[in-house]
């Protein structure tokens, strides 16, 4: 891994981490586990569409690991991981189906997948299938927050295209 690439990925991870920590300080929108803006995903989406899958995945994993550590909530690691990986898989899949101008669509589906993954992990961990009742609410919030992060990421990709060259 070249120095430049390492530095660039590290900066992006730091950015994602900062956004993540700042978001933690914001008051919750809804008192439902898993509902948040997921602003850090802006970085994931941006990285994927400019740098490619390996770099984006590395940044995502580092952010999740460090984020859980910094937030002092290692329990959340499992939920973040399952949500994060599932949404990443969806992003990868969607990338093949979309044009550059439709990037925000990938983000919407990724956000939904993220919440789905978190619910699945929560159901497994707490052995409480009835947590499924949160799925519709989480889908709505996924669409709304995914739209927001997606549009932001799309804007960022356009702007950072040249800066984040491989």
């Amino acid at each position: 891994m070249g120095i430049k690439r390492l530095a660039r990925d590290a900066v992006l991870t730091a950015a994602a981490l900062t956004i993540f920590i700042v978001e933690l300080q914001l008051p919750e929108l809804v008192p439902i586990p898993g509902v948040k803006l997921g602003l850090a995903n802006i970085v994931t989406v941006t990285a994927l569409f400019t740098l490619g899958a390996p770099d984006a995945l590395a940044i995502l994993l580092c952010r999740i690991l460090l984020g859980s550590l910094f937030a002092g909530n290692l329990m959340a690691l499992l939920y973040s991981l399952s949500g994060g990986l599932l949404s990443f898989a969806v992003l990868l899949l969607m990338r093949k189906l979309l044009t550059k101008k439709q990037l925000w669509v990938a983000s919407v589906f990724a956000a939904m997948a993220h919440n789905l993954g978190q619910i699945a992990a929560a159901i497994l961990v707490t052995s409480t299938p009835s947590l499924l009742v949160y799925l519709p609410v989480l889908t709505v919030s996924g669409i709304v927050t995914g739209l927001f992060t997606g549009l932001t990421a799309q804007y960022a990709v356009g702007r950072l295209k040249n800066v984040l060259k491989k």
Binding site: P31, M75, A76
Partner: peptide, 26 residues
């Protein structure tokens, strides 16, 4: 750490459970 369970407020006549994921409490 997240206090989601506290922010949920009162549970009364609702199918949605209160969840504290960090403590695995429902």
């Amino acid at each position: 750490p997240d206090k989601v369970c506290v922010d949920f407020g009162w549970l009364q006549d609702s199918a949605a459970p209160i969840v504290c994921l960090p403590h695995r409490l429902v």
